[in-house]
Design a protein around this nucleic acid. Structure first.
Lengths: 240, 240
DNA sequence: TATAATTTGTTATATAATTCACAATTATAC
DNA sequence: GTATAATTGTGAATTATATAACAAATTATA
């Protein structure tokens, strides 16, 4: 229904808007948001359309109420608790970032196999044995799980999460999880991402070298990085 | 030219193929790879097309030579060194994962502002002062940078990386970096991703609840999770 | 109050990614 | 050797996503 990318961008918009609100700005226009995030104004307006929220022509959007509208859309009416399985280096980093950072959403429990870790508290989160997943998930009424363990156990933990009630999984393991159609999975494959960046870094470098061989010609000004863009056009959709 | 998603999947294919090769299997078919990664066989074939590699009808792909073909495409002919800026929780996790893991690609230097960290070695990586970025990047001939620092310094570090010669950036900060068109950036925004998973977890849950109100009807069998699919169709493109 | 200037909301268009569908190819069975 | 079965490679169709284009709306200004 609503594009995944739009949901992700709404989260970005909210973060920017909160910053802007803190700076005392009360309204913002689509091209301003677009400029900050390096996307097109039309994209911003299109995304905001999904909220059912309306701005004011010639003025823009009211920052405060747009934040509220995004929050109403993105957030649960009640507290949402996530669980994390795997308190290794990455799990620890996630706990440091996500435990108690927002009001509406936080990691509330951690799990590990290592007896050294079970029972201890990491960044405000108690670490339980993985066997306790069903019990704790039930108590927290959690539907969000994070997997930060090695490949070999990932699918097993995933299955256990799902039978326990988890319906959205953020998976950092390199395994592509098999889930029923009523469970959402986001794969964050750091190795693959790293390799992709390395590949395109080389591509970019080659491109640059080839270009520098050519005589200096007019730059293509596709993304506003070019300084030759007329000032009056900077604030507009290129098409208008 | 080549789709970003294809590059990322090629990395996945290689990892699966290496596993499969280690298990002694010498050939593999598109539907097998597809089944492991939960994608469509046509997607696998299309991706492999970009390599210029050819399989054998009725047999599949030779595992060994497909790995070689992917490596030839993805990897640099020489060693590639990446640098990491920000040795916090996340940076440390990345070092643990990526320093010296592959032959062709690894993090070779870390940077931080904290005098406590500068000069120390983390997971085999020396930590330098951020001021040394230009010097070290030059010495390593690195074109890949990882940003794992807070928002406020991200753009400044990004600019410094680029003037030092970095052409591909893996950015974990919540800032959308402004870069010239000859630099590739991959944004991994963990907060936004987390919020997205939370959102779709709720969506899934609602969907499930609505469905359970309806009388039990035929399941739609879109992804092979359904047990009612005929066995002989499991190994085929649905269309054939 | 009328006119000009600007920005939104949204439809239409363009671009990109995925999936289908089937001809071409190869192996195997007879 | 021929027929049969299976799988690849790829043009065409579909789906998803992003961008352009412009009418409608609102404010500022004369």
């Amino acid at each position: 229904m609503i594009p995944e990318n739009t949901v992700e961008r709404l989260s970005l918009y909210r973060r920017v808007l909160q910053q802007i609100w803190a700076e005392g700005k009360e309204t913002i226009m689509s091209h301003e948001l677009a400029q900050i995030l390096h996307i097109k104004p039309a994209q911003v307006r299109r995304d905001i359309m999904y909220l059912g929220y309306s701005g004011i022509p010639n003025i823009g959007y009211k920052v405060k109420s747009l934040i509220e509208s995004i929050s109403q859309f993105l957030d649960s009416t009640s507290q949402q608790s996530a669980i994390l399985v795997g308190v290794g280096h990455l799990g620890m980093a996630l706990l440091a970032n996500f435990s108690g950072r927002w009001r509406q959403l936080a990691i509330r429990a951690a799990f590990d196999r290592d007896p050294e870790k079970i029972g201890r508290v990491f960044h405000g989160c108690v670490c339980y044995s993985v066997e306790d997943i069903p019990k704790v998930v039930g108590e927290l009424k959690s539907i969000i799980g994070i997997i930060a363990i090695p490949a070999d156990q990932a699918q097993k933990i995933c299955d256990l999460m799902i039978t326990s009630g988890i319906r959205g999984i953020l998976n950092f393991s390199p395994v592509r999880l098999k889930v029923p159609e009523y469970v959402y999975v986001e794969h964050v494959d750091l190795s693959a991402t790293f390799e992709k960046v390395a590949f395109f870094a080389r591509t970019m470098k080659k491109l640059e070298e080839e270009k520098s061989k050519l005589p200096p010609i007019l730059e293509n000004c596709s993304d506003g990085y070019n300084q030759n863009v007329k000032e009056e056009n900077l604030r507009k959709d290129v098409s208008v």
